[in-house]
Design a protein around this nucleic acid. Structure first.
Lengths: 212, 212
DNA sequence: GTCTATAGGACGATAGAC
DNA sequence: GTCTATCGTCCTATAGAC
């Protein structure tokens, strides 16, 4: 393939670059604190150049979240497909992950195993975890552009853990276990992000106690 | 006492009004999304009029947090002083509360009781809980004006719960119990705020399980 | 696909009158 | 204690050339 000038990337590549830069900036300042000018500068673009690709500031946020969903879907495959000698799997959703379809070809892993796998991946991408922590809190207000997204996300994740908990069959009702696991995951990750040098995997193992 | 015109309140009263308005606005938009103009308008002031009282935008955030600390201290008194027939206690820190001094005149309540009391109070002031949820996430970045405040706050709260857990003497190490309780509290509150109509007290009782 | 130019505001903050 | 006036900066977005 022929190379392009430094100032005229193909659209898909440029879009990926924009999303990468914007992800970091949103994780640091939230959506309200995000400046299109900063994103553009990070990409070596002017603001109109940036807007050509994402349409608007809201459009940029949507692009970020859609990209995360896609990455999470890819992460799911390698996460549940090959646990011991993993394929270079790229990413996973910070607070419990993508759509865990009810039955797969491989024997479905336990709730404890899925949590451990998610935690292991999240430990390697604190920036993404922080992105979700910040947007999750910021979007509590109904007029936030990602409000509906995060309401739906919470329900989806609760449903997925509930299904896993049902299979595991602990003493508590599956819905209760799901709420507890999700709360612990979110809370422990906040503590981790606020303690530089702490180890999320260790923190999770210590804190979670006995999971069904 | 003589009444003042509507446009010239005494400083203390005006300050209280400003903090009340700003608390609501920060809870909705975070610090980066806060506009001094909005705060001023809410108080029937111009921006310079507002700045006369708080000095700067950072000064306003500091005022909000100092006011919360003071309210939390007052809440502690009535919270631990008279559990059954409570004095009209005003407020309490959303994620585990003020300085619980080691020994008081009244017999120190158990960890479970303290959590229940904090949850009961937080259930009555979702706006304050959201204020802390938003600032807690936003301030993960070291350059946030409240970063140091929230790092110190996490440590203080962990220490306080650890002391309570030590007294209660469960099976797990007190520090581990403290981390678990704090994570559950933060996580459950996030779920509560994202589910309109849900009951925090019920949610906590269901989710927390057995506490020492 | 990226630019320049520019519209049209909102922002935080200061100076100085009353 | 509050105002008007103003500074200088930042912001998102559009129009239109290349």
């Amino acid at each position: 393939m022929a190379r392009h000038d430094r100032t005229r990337l193909p659209a898909a590549e440029r879009r990926r670059q924009i999303i990468t830069a914007a992800t970091r900036l949103v994780a640091e300042r939230g959506f309200w604190g995000l400046s299109m000018q900063d994103v553009a500068a990070d990409c070596g673009l002017t603001v109109p150049g940036l807007l050509h690709h994402v349409g608007s500031k809201d459009g940029l946020l949507i692009a970020i979240l859609e990209h995360r969903d896609a990455e999470d879907a890819r992460a799911l495959a390698s996460l549940l497909g090959a646990p011991p000698l993993g394929v270079p799997s790229p990413s996973s959703s910070p607070s419990l992950s993508p759509s865990l379809s009810p039955s797969l070809s491989s024997p479905s892993p336990s709730l404890r195993e899925v949590c451990a796998a998610v935690v292991r991946r999240n430990a390697s991408q604190p920036e993404i975890v922080r992105l979700f922590a910040v947007l999750q809190a910021e979007s509590l207000t109904p007029d936030h552009p990602a409000h509906a997204y995060f309401v739906a996300r919470q329900q989806r994740i609760l449903d997925e853990i509930t299904a896993l908990a049902k299979a595991a069959g602990g003493p508590a009702p599956p819905e209760t276990t799901a709420r507890r696991v999700m709360a612990l995951m979110d809370g422990v990750q906040l503590q981790w992000l606020r303690s530089p040098g702490s180890d999320l995997i260790q923190l999770w193992a210590d804190t979670v106690g006995d999971l069904p």
